[in-house]
């Protein structure tokens, strides 16, 4: 009976989350699709070429949202990790786990689009520019989080240790950013990547950022749902094994 109670306790809070998220997920996904579609229409048919960069500025409309979502993803992981370690909230670990691959994917997207933007701008695919380097290091931190979680058998322990690592990362990220900026000014006085954004480009950029942020949220909710289902299946299987054991011992008695 006792194990049954903890089982229901384990399901209680996530159940409410499942109901709520199932209700709002379609709307968020639809909003993401609308915003992205309209932003892409503006980017390819309306937005003017930049007077310096020409049409290559079109890469900005996916590069900048990716970089922003890379940071937002890490913030979500950090907040969730805090919630897990301090408040022991059952959904916090689910949230941190689900956000990691999404954040890593957007970080990778920011790196690749940045590199492809850099080739026409700088003449090489990779420049050790302060911002690109910082994003690369952020990508390493994402990889570390995913690798640490996958290397531990005990999932509860894996979640907590990954949370510790995520918080260590938050503490050290500003220092890394500062040192990379310092290093960059030493070796490369200027990169010429700092042109202000023209108003005619601001609207599509904003719409694109909103659209992909909604997409991130939708994917995050879906990922959390998947993780909750996965854990339910696991608890059910464990309960099944327990029941089988009990039935066996009863029969032996």
């Amino acid at each position: 009976m006792k194990s049954m109670q903890t089982l229901t306790q384990r399901l209680a809070n996530p159940t409410r989350f499942m109901e709520l998220s199932r209700a709002i997920l379609p709307w968020i996904a639809a909003g993401a699709a609308l915003f992205i579609a309209y932003a892409m229409y503006l980017v390819f048919f309306v937005a003017p070429p930049d007077y310096q960069q020409g049409e290559t500025v079109k890469i900005m409309y996916i590069h900048v949202p990716s970089a922003w979502l890379a940071l937002m993803g890490y913030s979500i992981i950090a907040l969730s990790s805090f919630g897990l370690l301090v408040f022991r909230h059952p959904l916090a670990d689910v949230s941190a786990k689900a956000a990691a691959p999404i954040g890593a994917a957007f970080t990778l997207a920011a790196l690749i689009t940045g590199s492809l933007w850099g080739k026409p701008m700088w003449g090489t695919y990779w420049v050790w520019d302060a911002r690109l380097t910082s994003v690369l290091i952020l990508f390493f931190l994402y990889l570390g989080l995913i690798a640490l979680r996958s290397s531990l058998e005990d999932e509860a322990l894996a979640g907590k240790l990954t949370a510790v690592l995520a918080l260590v990362g938050v503490a050290i990220l500003p220092i890394i950013k500062f040192s990379v900026d310092w290093w960059n000014t030493l070796h490369q006085p200027s990169t010429g990547f700092t042109s202000s954004v023209d108003p005619s480009m601001r609207t599509p950029l904003l719409l694109s950022a909103i659209g992909f942020t909604l997409l991130f949220i939708a994917l995050h909710l879906k990922g959390m749902q998947n993780e909750i289902l996965r854990r339910r299946v696991k608890t059910l299987r464990l309960a099944e094994i327990e029941r089988g054991d009990r039935a066996f011992s009863e029969r032996v008695e």
């Binding site: 390493f140 690798a147 050290i172 890394i176 040192s179 990379v180």
Partner: peptide, 8 residues
């Protein structure tokens, strides 16, 4: 895990 922490 550790090498990125050594960057600064």
């Amino acid at each position: 895990l550790v090498l990125p922490l050594y960057i600064p």
